[in-house]
């Protein structure tokens, strides 16, 4: 039997070929402000997690009684708003770039799941506030969740359960998906512009001879 270590190394190298993880050059067409929003989503997610960790140090009700706690809560709230704002711009940008082309469907799909997972995480955060807002949101939300049977095991009226989902389960899931998303982005490289494509199955364009690509000044390794 061959070496497991070699097997894993080969596997990793095939997932993200050497030099592709952190290349210091990008294709020339990567020149637009829209590309910044993926990185901004990631950066604001880091701030969300960081401020959440500081909030966790003080415990569940710290922020109701401490001025510092309240400020940390404010940073957590606003970083979440920034995270969603940048993520939604990123989503629409990738949509109008049809960035799922060229075997990048899984990149889009992990992004979409990260979006939905983030909504669930934020929702449990609102339920964990232990204030009037969480009372009201819980009372409203229970009917929706109960109506499709989710409420039977996911009880929005139980702030203890919601807090644990908010601080462990959901961030873990979102975190793993975001890592997968970014690994996929590095694996495939940034998607080329739309008209560098011959006609797809239903894209209406007619092939016009060779793909209009300048001779490659290739200095990135391409493996496999």
């Amino acid at each position: 039997m061959s070496s497991w270590t070699v097997g894993l190394r080969t596997r990793l190298a095939r997932t993200v070929p050497p030099g592709e993880l952190l290349p210091d050059r990008q294709p020339a067409y990567v020149s637009s402000w829209i590309y910044v929003f993926g990185v901004l989503s990631l950066a604001s997610l880091v701030v969300v997690i960081g401020t959440g960790c500081v909030l966790a140090i003080g415990g569940v009700t710290w922020w109701h009684t401490s001025g510092l706690g309240h400020f940390v809560n404010s940073t957590h709230l606003w970083s979440v708003e920034l995270f969603f704002a940048t993520m939604v711009i990123h989503l629409w940008g990738k949509f109008f770039m049809a960035a799922w082309r060229g075997k990048r469907a899984l990149t889009w799909m992990t992004g979409a799941v990260a979006f939905v997972g983030s909504i669930g995480t934020a929702f449990t955060g609102y339920l964990s506030q232990t204030n009037f807002d969480s009372q009201w949101i819980a009372g409203e939300a229970k009917d929706g969740l109960n109506s499709v049977g989710i409420g039977a095991f996911f009880n929005v009226l139980d702030p203890g359960q919601m807090l644990l989902w908010h601080v462990t389960l959901l961030p873990l899931v979102v975190g793993v998906i975001v890592v997968a998303h970014i690994v996929l982005v590095r694996r495939h490289g940034v998607v080329p512009p739309i008209d560098a494509v011959l006609d797809g199955p239903d894209d209406g364009a007619t092939p016009t001879g060779p793909i209009p690509v300048a001779p490659a000044a290739r200095d990135l390794t391409t493996t496999g």
Binding site: A28, V30, L42, A43, G102, G200, I211, V213, A216
Partner: peptide, 21 residues
């Protein structure tokens, strides 16, 4: 069916991912 070319076939320019992040 997918006619999208490999992104690595295009000309490149310097890009500092770590600095951007």
């Amino acid at each position: 069916r997918d006619r999208t070319p490999d992104s690595h076939a295009f000309p490149t320019r310097p890009y500092d991912l770590v600095k951007e992040f």
